[in-house]
Design a protein around this nucleic acid. Structure first.
Length: 479
DNA sequence: AGGGCGTTGCTAAA
DNA sequence: TTTAGCAACGCCCT
């Protein structure tokens, strides 16, 4: 008796701890492991503000393609393979078509919390249910079900941690073989495309990300991290060095978690085991488990908050009348602010697709200048405190590589003779500062103060202009 | 209703 | 190396 199942990969690009894959295999004569190429995610969009598609930058697209190659290879080792399908006009309708064409009895895909994924999945769910096809959509991207608490998540990290408890254990199952792939009929199967085949040609970039995608690489990185039990147990995020780049101060597992190359529950489980053997260890918010809970916290709040990725229509976001200055915004985005610490970070993001968390705080703070509590990161002294010789700046901004240590964080203060000797004239080879930090930061602080005062008094007239915690505001700046 | 405190700052002064 | 002052929002617990 034939019984066919589809396992539809989107995130969750892994074999380990994959409940959708596990369920698809149960009692099925054939499974169809499918990935649909989403043009919105992959194809170049000239109107996007950086090189990439409408929904992802080039680094992320590259990472995703790595993930797919690795997943296909792992599936082949188990006697299966990845079926890559064209996503025109969009992925959901392609899935609906194959559910019929392949005579599918059940379709399995990981629950996706994000609005784009929710809308996409609703189409498939509705269609499948109409045809009497079983839909299995487990929560496995996050530790917990983000729909808990009736969609009214706690708004501070501490209260979230207090409610959190222990997440479900990861699946312990390993495979020696998967059910064979069924007959795909007339459906066209594609190869996993290259970046060039997607239409990204002539990319002028001399350095690419050292972080390759895929489950194999994720597990290799994880095991590397877990080897040093003392490091795992004593990890304290604020003590990390944001200027460390050859050997980053954190695990750099975040992109692997993002695509589900690494299961967050498996990671949690591994960390817990280390804690048990070592005894004394750090705790949330600064510990490694604390970092996983931060991820969880923001997924949960985002799921329970309409328009979480925007200011307008987001009821937990303070409504600030931001100054629109396209020139300044572009200077920030392209790493041309004239502040080497800021620019080096933005160039690292552009080239590597990754930056340290404190580096992100630096550039986010620089963009907004906004933070109450009077905690404003200095674009000069914050970096210097970690890396007085400017090794990080010299690497990502080679134009400054011969600038003396004394001036590396403030090159505009170097005498012209020194600039000439360093082969870097400020205003010609490297930009002058786009703003004077002290002045701009004071001005912005004042304006934000006014905006806060105004919002407070207007609250009754406009319920979208409600209140917000500083924590949430920081999160908004990450996007 | 009211007070405590919030993931990780900076500068100046002791 | 440590500490005070900065100037003050709003969630959350009591």
């Amino acid at each position: 008796m034939e019984s066919n199942a589809v396992v539809w990969f989107r995130k969750g690009l892994r074999i380990h701890d994959n409940p959708a894959l596990d369920y698809a295999c149960r009692g099925s004569s054939h499974i169809f492991p499918v990935f649909v190429l989403d043009p919105r995610y992959l194809h170049p969009d000239p109107s996007a503000f950086s090189l990439g598609s409408a929904r992802a930058g080039l680094n992320r697209i590259r990472f995703l393609l790595d993930c797919l190659l690795d997943l296909d290879s792992s599936l082949r080792n188990l006697g299966s393979r990845l079926l890559v399908l064209r996503g025109h006009p969009e992925p959901a309708s392609v899935i609906c078509r194959i559910l019929k064409d392949w005579n599918i009895r059940k379709v399995c895909y990981e629950f996706d919390t994000e609005p784009y994924g929710q809308a996409r999945d609703r189409q498939v769910t509705d269609f499948a249910r109409q045809l009497g096809i079983e839909v299995f959509s487990p929560v496995s991207h996050t530790l917990f079900d983000p729909a808990e608490n009736g969609g009214r998540p706690p708004l501070t990290y501490q209260s979230f941690v207090a409610l959190a408890g222990k997440p479900p254990d990861p699946l312990a199952k390993t495979y020696s073989e998967l059910p064979p792939v069924g007959n795909v009929g007339k459906v066209e199967l594609l190869n996993i495309p290259t970046i060039e085949e997607l239409g990204y040609r002539d990319i002028e970039q001399e350095e690419f990300s050292p972080f390759g995608g895929g489950e194999s690489e994720a597990l290799r990185r994880l095991n590397e991290v877990l080897k040093d039990k003392e490091w795992v147990a004593n990890f304290e995020k604020p003590k990390g060095d944001p200027s460390a780049f050859w050997k980053p101060a954190t695990t750099v597992l975040s992109p692997y978690l993002k695509f589900g190359c690494l299961s967050s529950r498996y990671f949690y489980h591994c960390l817990h085991s280390v804690y048990l053997t070592v005894g004394k260890h750090t705790s949330p918010p600064v510990s490694l488990v604390g970092q996983l809970l931060w991820r969880e916290f923001f997924y949960t709040v985002a799921f329970g908050t309409p328009n979480f990725d925007q200011m307008r229509g987001n009821k937990i976001c303070k409504q600030i009348p931001w100054k629109d200055d396209d020139k300044l915004l572009v200077a920030w985005r392209e790493g041309r602010t004239g502040y080497p610490w800021i620019d080096a970070i933005m160039i690292q993001l552009k080239k590597w697709g990754w930056m340290h968390h404190l580096a992100r705080h630096s550039v986010a703070c620089f963009l907004t200048r906004g933070d109450l509590y009077h905690r404003i990161y200095s674009p000069i002294s914050f970096g210097r405190k970690y890396d007085p010789d400017g090794k990080y700046i010299r690497h990502f901004l080679p134009v400054l590589k011969d600038m003396p240590n004394e001036y590396i964080y403030e090159p505009w203060t170097a005498p012209l003779s020194i600039q000439k000797k360093a082969n870097c004239i400020i205003g010609k080879d490297y930009p002058r500062p786009v703003v004077v930090h002290d002045r701009a930061s004071k001005e912005c602080r004042k304006k934000m103060g006014e905006a806060y005062a105004k919002v407070g008094s207007a609250e009754e007239e406009d319920d979208t202009a409600a209140s917000e915690s500083t924590t949430m505001q920081k999160r908004k700046r990450r996007t």
